[in-house]
Nucleic acid binder design. Structure first.
Lengths: 154, 154
DNA sequence: CCAGCTTAGTTGTTATAACAGATGTCGTCA
DNA sequence: TGACGACATCTGTTATAACAACTAAGCTGG
């Protein structure tokens, strides 16, 4: 009887559990991203733009090929990366140069201005993370990060 | 010495932990949403449209005011909801009628065609969730869902 | 009852995303 | 060496998102 009940209960709740996790991830993600957007708005910066600035800061003075930038972004197609970088170049945050030894490749580098901007955002963004997650213990955060990473496996 | 080390170590890892959770949530979210988009694409349906269909199916034959639909969607401004519903009406999945007793309100209802579509998607979507998360135990899923919900609190 | 506030939805405009196809450059192998 | 396929990026087009301003309908207090 015990076994029967278990096998009955197993199927249905398990599937809806998967769906619940799916929905929770999306809800949490949109809430978090919205907080970031709100932080960036006064700086007249969108989230993908901020993302690019962080990537290029991390890449150092050598910069990165456009394609590499695209690969490191969570979600963006190649054509969008091109135009994103072009727009950012117009704003003076990024410099794009065609590589001499391989003229197919466009190297994107962060400018001094872009660097100042992204540096100025470190503290506000850090504070935002604090506001979002200060009520969770280190242990909980660790568990959460681990489970999320595990969720993406396979 | 112990205390000192602790106070030194405490600050930095904790903040980067928050950031790590933030990034994990976004990465997992985009991966999951991409899977859904891939499932919906053969049906020529976008994720917000699918969302609306599920909401209106859940609302039953009485339908819902546009504003209500917007509130139940994760992220979408009012103007976008209007146009989203208009587009879906053109495709025959939704019917919009102005309410007689309060002509400001537009009630949106799912059509027979829309209902067939969203019902036909239940199984593929369920299978997608299975592919995404079959490697995680019920216990892990429960913990994950609980922690995510908790992350949004406060 | 009616001027002015509120509510619900719409329209206009600009920015960005998605997708397909084109362009310019490079490597390579007959 | 030079045709050809692959690579990295770009352009064109359409769809959708963001934001602001507007319209129409209902409500309310003098």
């Amino acid at each position: 009887m015990r076994l029967l009940r278990q096998s009955i209960k197993q199927r249905k709740p398990f599937e809806s559990l998967q769906q619940e996790v799916f929905l929770e991830v999306l809800r949490t993600g949109t809430a978090m991203i919205q907080d970031l957007v709100d932080v960036l708005k006064p700086f007249d910066l969108t989230q993908p733009q901020y993302n690019v600035l962080r990537i290029l800061r991390g890449a150092g003075p050598g910069g990165l090929p456009s394609g590499e930038v695209g690969d490191r972004m969570v979600a963006s197609r190649e054509p969008d990366v091109t135009r994103l970088l072009v727009r950012m170049e117009k704003r003076g945050w990024v410099r794009r140069t065609r590589r001499a030894d391989n003229r197919r490749v466009v190297t994107a580098r962060i400018t001094e201005k872009g660097l100042r901007l992204v540096n100025a955002l470190d503290e506000p963004v850090r504070q935002m993370h604090g506001r979002q997650l200060h009520h969770m213990s280190g242990r909980e955060l660790n568990t959460l990060a681990t489970l999320l990473e595990r969720a993406r496996r396979e």
